[in-house]
Amino acid sequence: MLVKANDKVRVHYTGTLKNGEVFDSSEGKEPLEFTIGAGQIIPGFENGILGMKVEESKTLDIPANEAYGERKEDLVQEVPKTQLPPEITPEVGMQLMSQTPNGQQIPLVVTEVKDSSITVDANHPLAGKDLIFEVSIVSIN
């Protein structure tokens, strides 16, 4: 049995950057479970495991455009500190949540703190990066 569209699969994986830094892994955890074609994971990962069989392992080399996309500089903005809730003391690396007028939550990361403003980045932390996954198929349903 080979992985195909609409299959529910369970996989073990380790994700690394080109420099070898591990950014995520299922090691020591339950396998990741998802349905092929449901849009639950990045396209390059999903396409990379099509045609694999149970207990097969493979290295997936996924370019940024098939992962979290390219970085978009228009998602980096300077915000006056007066727009922050008074209980927040911003620090570089701090994660904040913003809300659009229609109620959608957008995660932001503080990248710079100035006297009267902060710079926030709404890009996914892995945007613009090519990713490498070591993946092993645990089950196909």
Rank of each mutant, 00 (worst) to 15 (best):
G15C: 12
E70T: 06
S136G: 10
M1E: 14
G15F: 03
P63I: 11
N19D: 15
E27H: 13
G128W: 00
P107F: 02
D74T: 14
E112G: 11
L96T: 01
V110H: 05
I41Q: 03
H12F: 07
L84V: 05
S116G: 11
K81A: 10
E46S: 05
Y68D: 05
E56S: 12
R10H: 08
S26D: 04
T16P: 04
V92A: 12
G28D: 07
L17N: 11
M1P: 08
L131F: 10
M52Y: 01
M52R: 00
D115G: 12
D121L: 03
Q104Y: 11
S116H: 14
S25G: 08
K81M: 08
I42Q: 05
V11W: 00
S116V: 09
N65W: 14
I132A: 09
L60I: 11
K72A: 05
N6E: 08
D7Y: 02
E73V: 06
Q83C: 10
T35E: 06
V135W: 01
P101R: 14
N123C: 01
L96P: 04
S136N: 15
E56Q: 14
K58R: 13
F133R: 01
E78N: 12
V79A: 05
G44A: 11
I49M: 01
K58A: 14
Q105T: 10
N65A: 12
E70R: 09
Q40E: 15
P86F: 10
S57Q: 15
E70P: 09
E21T: 15
Q83W: 13
G93P: 03
L126G: 03
I41D: 00
L84W: 04
E73I: 08
D7Q: 02
Q83D: 12
G20Q: 06
E21Y: 11
Q40G: 08
L17M: 08
G69V: 02
S26E: 05
A38D: 12
L84R: 03
N141Y: 00
G15P: 01
K29S: 13
T59E: 14
A38F: 10
P125S: 08
K18T: 13
Q104A: 15
S25E: 04
I49N: 00
K58E: 05
